[in-house]
Write a protein that binds this DNA or RNA. Sequence first.
DNA 1: CTGAAAGCGCTTACAG
DNA 2: CTGAAAGCGCTTACAG
Lengths: 358, 358
Amino acid sequence: MTTHGQTAAPRARPTMRDVAALSGVSLKTVSRVVNLEPGVSDDLADRVRQAAEQLDYHPNLTASSLRRSDGKTQTIGLILEDVSNPFEAALHRRIEEVARARGVVVIAGSVDEDEARERDLATALVARRVDGLIVMPTGHDQSYLAKEQRSGTPMVFVDRPPTFLDADCVLTANESGARAAVAHLISHGHRRIAFLGDQPSISTAIERLSGYRDALERAGIAADSALIRLSLTSSDQAEIAVAELLAAPDAPTAIFASQNLLTIGVVRALHQLGRQHSIALVGFDDLPLVDLLNPGVTLVLQDVTGLGTATADILFRRLDGDTRPSERIILPTTLIPKGSGEILGPFATIESATGAVS
Amino acid sequence: MTTHGQTAAPRARPTMRDVAALSGVSLKTVSRVVNLEPGVSDDLADRVRQAAEQLDYHPNLTASSLRRSDGKTQTIGLILEDVSNPFEAALHRRIEEVARARGVVVIAGSVDEDEARERDLATALVARRVDGLIVMPTGHDQSYLAKEQRSGTPMVFVDRPPTFLDADCVLTANESGARAAVAHLISHGHRRIAFLGDQPSISTAIERLSGYRDALERAGIAADSALIRLSLTSSDQAEIAVAELLAAPDAPTAIFASQNLLTIGVVRALHQLGRQHSIALVGFDDLPLVDLLNPGVTLVLQDVTGLGTATADILFRRLDGDTRPSERIILPTTLIPKGSGEILGPFATIESATGAVS
DNA sequence: CTGAAAGCGCTTACAG
DNA sequence: CTGAAAGCGCTTACAG
C-alpha cells in the first residue's frame, strides 16, 4: 500500500511561532523578516530565513489581514452575469491581469439576471472581506451596497451603471454605437430596419434601442413598433423573431441585433431561410469566426480590454486613497464592416453602392 | 456638495462585541445566535437578532475561519490556463455552480503556459487558505504541491493529469477522441491526413497525436512526418501551417486540427485558399457558429459540463472526508458531423459516399 | 441556558 | 536592533 497524499493524516502547517522557536528569535523578529521590514541584523535574518525554508513556512494571509491595520485581504470580488459569456470572460481576464500586478486575486461569480443572487454574492464577498468590488449589476437597486461603501469598500460598476447608489462606473457608449449601426444600414439604402433586443430592464438594451430610434429620427424615418422586438433572451428566441418578422407583410430589409447571443440567432435564421444575402444585418458585440461566414457579419465592437483596464484601474486608485467624486467613463465602439451590413436596400443610391458612404 | 459614498470617512463595521453590548449579552451568546447553535432562550436570541439587525451586523468569515477548528474559508482555488478561453470559462461556470450550492466561492486565475506563474498562483491561493484546489496543470512537475496536499488541502486536476503527484484527476478521452476523428476521415476516403497540434509538452496534445497515429496504423496507413505539424500555439500559426502543407507536393487531402484555436486557423486558411470544399477537416473542441460556415465544421466535442461537475464533485467529496485512493475519471468525446469532415477523399468507396459509414 | 477565559496566526504599539 | 504584551474578530473548551 503506497502512501497516498490525500489519505495520509494531515500534517500541521508550520506557523511563525514554529519558525521563531527553530531559529531562536522572537515572533516579532520572524514577522519583520517575513514582511521584509528593515532593521533586522543580517545574522538573525539569515537564521530566520533558514528556519522558514527548513520548515517550508508560508505566511497565513488571512491571519495577517485580520490583524493588519488596513485589514487588506489582497482579494477583490467580481460580480458578473455569467463568467462563461465571452464578453464577460474577456473582461474578467483583463481585471485579473491588473490585479495580479498588485498581488491581488479575484473571486468572480455569476448571478445570471437574478437580483437575489446578486445580493447573495455581494454578501458572500463582503463576508470574506474583499478589498474592493467590481459589479456588472443585474438588479435595479444597488442601494443595498451603500453601507458597505461607507464601511470603506470601494466599488466600481462596469457595463451598466448602478441605480440608487453613487459610485464609479465604466460603460460602453451603447447609444452612439447603436446609432452608428443603424445609420450604417440607412446609408446603405434601408428604411425598414428591425431592432432585436434583450429585456428592457437591462440598461444596455434600452440605450441601444434609444440609439436605434435616434438614427431613424435623424434620417426622417418613422419608427414602426412592429419592427421592434424586445425581451429576447436567447439565440433561439431571436431566431424565431426573425422568422416572424420576415414572414410579415412589409417585412424589414435590414436587422440590427443589439447583443451577441441575438446576433447568433439572426444569423441562424437568415441562413435557414436562405436570406443571408438579401437581408442586411449589423450585430452588437464581438463573435468569433463570423468574418468567415458568407457574408461576413458586420459588427459593432465594444472595447473590452479598455473596459476591464479602466474598471480595475479606478478600483485600485480608490484603494490607494483617491477620494475624488465618483466618475463615469464611457468608451466608444467601433463598427467593422464585414459584408452583412453592406447589403444594399431598396433606397440605395449610387453613393451607397460605390461605398462612398460607410 | 453631496455626501459622496466613496469620500465620506469610513464608518467602522460592527463586530460581535458591538452586538453583544447593544443586546446586553455575552459575546458567546451572540456567536451562538449567529451560528444558529441550539440552546439559546428565545428571549435572548430575539434581542441579539434585533441588535444585529439594528447595527447591520455581518459576520467576518475570515476571522471565524481563523479560529474554527476545521479552518474552512468556504473558498476554493481554480488554476486555469486562461479564464477567457471558452472551454475553460465553461468549466469555471460549472465548478462555480457546484460550489455555490455549498456556500463556497471560487478564486480563479490564469497562468497561460507559464510554470512559474502556476506555482505563484498556487502559493497565492494557499496563502489565502483555500479549502481545496482545482488545477489545470501547465507545468510538468506538480510535486511542489505535495506538502500542501499533506497539510490537508484536497486537490483535483482537470483536463490534464498531474505529474509527480498522486491526486484525483478528471480527463477527456483525448486519444480515443482523436482516433475517432481520424478514422472518420479515413472512412471518407482520405489517406493523406495532416495533424495540427499544440506544444508537445502539453499532455493533451500528445494524446491526440497518439490517437491520430493509432487510427492511421489500424487502417494500414504509414504516418508521414511531413504531415504532422506540432508546436502550433495560435490560430495564425495554424493558418500558415495549412498554407505550407497545401503548397507542398503530395499535399494532404484532409486535416485534423487537434485544438479549438488551431481549428479557427485552418478554417481561415481553407477559406482564404478557396479550398474549404475540397479539403476535409475535423476539429477538436467546440466552437460557436461553425455549423453555419459553408461547409459546417465537423467537430469532436468534449463533455465540458461533465468535466466541471465531476471535478467539483470529487473535490467536495474529499472535503467531506473521503479518503479512498485517488481516482482518474475519463470522459468520452462525441463526433458531430457538420460537413467539413464528410468531404470525400480520393479513396472514397460507395459506402463512404452514401454515408453508410460515419 | 449563559458566559469568562484562552487562543487561532498574525501585526501593532511600545519599551528597552 | 530586538522582543514582551496586547489585540484583530471570532470559536473553543470549560465552568457554572
